[in-house]
Amino acid sequence: MNSPVMASAINGNRPFTAIGKILHEQPDDREAASMLYLRTLARHPTDRELNLCLDHVKEVGNRNDAFEDIFWSLLNSTEFIHRK
């Protein structure tokens, strides 16, 4: 939730983090969100989930911050913790 290791791993401004790479290589928000889902939950987002993500990006107004939030949410989700 708060660990410094986690915080630096989800930093979108760094080219060597998973999210930094995705944001750099994938200018399309829809595709970027899908790739984050694949990386963390090994599945594509549902339409509802994708729309929530896109709404969040719009609402926050800062692409990098918004995607960091999404990445954090997925990594802290029950699905990520419990899925085997």
């Binding site: 549902t46 989930e49 969040h56 939030d69 949410s73 802290n76 989700s77």
Partner: peptide, 12 residues
């Protein structure tokens, strides 16, 4: 972030 996580979980 917490709100977003909850919204995403509820959507599932």
């Amino acid at each position: 972030r917490l709100d977003l996580m909850e919204r995403l979980e509820v959507a599932h």
